[in-house]
Amino acid sequence: MQCANSPCKLKKDVALGRLTAELALPIELADLRESGHLHESGSFNVALLIPMCGPAGIWAPSCISSAQVAAAELNRTNGIQGRRVQLIMIDAAIEAGEPIEEIINELIELGAIDAIVGMHLSAVRQRLSKVVRQRIPYIYTPLYEGGETTPGLFAIGETPQEQLGPAMAMLQQAFRPRKWALIGNDYVWPRSSHSFAKTCLKQMNVDLAMECYVPFGLPSMTGLVDRLEASGADAVLVSLVGQDAVNFNRVFGRRGLHKSILRLSCALEENGLMACGEGNLERLFSVSSYFGSISTDANACFKERYYAMHGEIGPALNALGQSTYEGLHYLSVLLRDFGDIWRGRSTQDGLPVIHESGRSFERNGKKERPSIYLARADGVQFCDFKLL
């Protein structure tokens, strides 16, 4: 699942350079509708569902840029099913004005999209899974709570059992916190993840000091941080999304609470890290299957391709962005190697889809699963990667 030509030989690959970057330019849904060609395209149209507003909107630039690299790579060969890949950007934020399930149902009925690659919240995935109904393949790319069994929907991100459990165990062994707090936005991923976290705490014979869920876009994090400080927790699992996590960490840092409470996040990536500010990141840890600065052969290859297209000033590489790159390649190989079999299969079947990725993989029984790392924030970057 790593670079097929490792060591990577793309330093002089003009097809991925800036001169041909326009070949992978995504279009927005509004432009597609305005063109009047909703069902007349000869391209393989992929709906790229990403949050473009609200707290999770901070992830959008990295997701779009990474998906562009994958589209360019596919188009320089044979596209998907012999057709040029065209990305159609659609706002999948919870706060988006038009219901995403209505948009997708309309586009599928019109024959305007051939597949979905979604990097969005699990709450949106649950709504869409009832609409797509195996009519087109749906690749869901980020980390998630696990348990997805919908036919025709393939969740390729890591789950709490793979990611959260081992990270909590390592931090518990290293720092011996007596009490943990669990804080998150009020939707399925934090609640499911925290349910698993409570099982882990019970197994480790560690107390739960606080559990709290807040709405998206909470105007002030002061009250939440007040509650955390008063709880007596020595560690906190932060399952807040995007800008909400940023705002929480800023208030936390200004209070100097890192002196008494360590932080763990499963979804804080490089954009969020920079937005938090260097002074607000002490004793903050993140766990993920991908970090932009991690030194692996797979990431070296991906970074070379990414910077060949976008240059050094491209959006920050991170796990959520990389997942859209991987999702497009997963989609291509799924359709190439499994034909229409995908309609009756799901995530739980573990189809052996061998695809390009910026992540490294290791065999777990009969399946290959991504390697998971615990990292520490250092300034505005991650370091001290520990393989879990």
Results as ranks from 00 to 15, higher is better:
Gln68Ala: 13
Gly232Cys: 04
Ile27Trp: 05
Ala56Ile: 03
Asn78Phe: 11
Gly157Asp: 08
Gly152Met: 07
Ala96Gln: 13
His120Glu: 12
Ile100Phe: 04
Glu98Phe: 03
Ala96Thr: 06
Met309Leu: 06
Ser43Pro: 09
Trp189Asn: 02
Gly79Tyr: 02
Ala235Tyr: 03
Met168Asp: 08
Arg127Val: 04
Thr20Glu: 12
Leu107Glu: 10
Gly311Arg: 04
Gly358Ile: 00
Lys303His: 07
Thr159Val: 15
Gln163Asp: 15
Ser346Gly: 09
His355Met: 03
Asp114Lys: 05
Asn299Gln: 10
Leu374Gly: 07
Ser41Met: 09
Val380Cys: 11
Thr347Ala: 07
Asn247Phe: 05
His258Met: 08
Ser122Phe: 01
Lys386Gly: 01
Ser195Arg: 15
Leu328Val: 08
Ile183Ala: 01
Ser66Asn: 15
Ser62Gly: 12
Gln2Glu: 14
Pro142Glu: 12
Met309Asn: 00
Val241Gln: 12
Gln161Gly: 13
Asn78Met: 10
Arg369Ala: 12
Ala30Asn: 14
Gly344Asp: 13
Pro51His: 06
Glu282Leu: 12
Phe216Val: 00
His37Leu: 12
Gly344Pro: 05
Ser357Tyr: 04
Leu388Glu: 09
Gly82Cys: 07
Ile80Gln: 00
His329Lys: 08
Leu331Gln: 02
Ser35Lys: 11
Thr159Arg: 15
Thr347Leu: 04
Gly184Trp: 08
Leu208Thr: 01
Asn249Ala: 13
Tyr213Ile: 05
Thr296Ile: 02
Ser265Glu: 05
Tyr187Asn: 08
Pro190Leu: 06
Ile313His: 13
Glu101Ile: 00
Leu87His: 03
Arg76Asp: 05
Leu23Met: 15
Asp207Thr: 05
Arg345Thr: 08
Ile261Tyr: 06
Ala71Asp: 11
Tyr325Ile: 00
Phe44Arg: 04
Arg359Lys: 13
Thr324Ser: 13
Leu331Asn: 01
His194Phe: 02
Ala319Glu: 10
Ile136Lys: 06
Asp91His: 08
Met89Ala: 14
Gly118Thr: 11
Leu317Ile: 12
Arg305Ala: 07
Val85Met: 10
Asp186Trp: 03
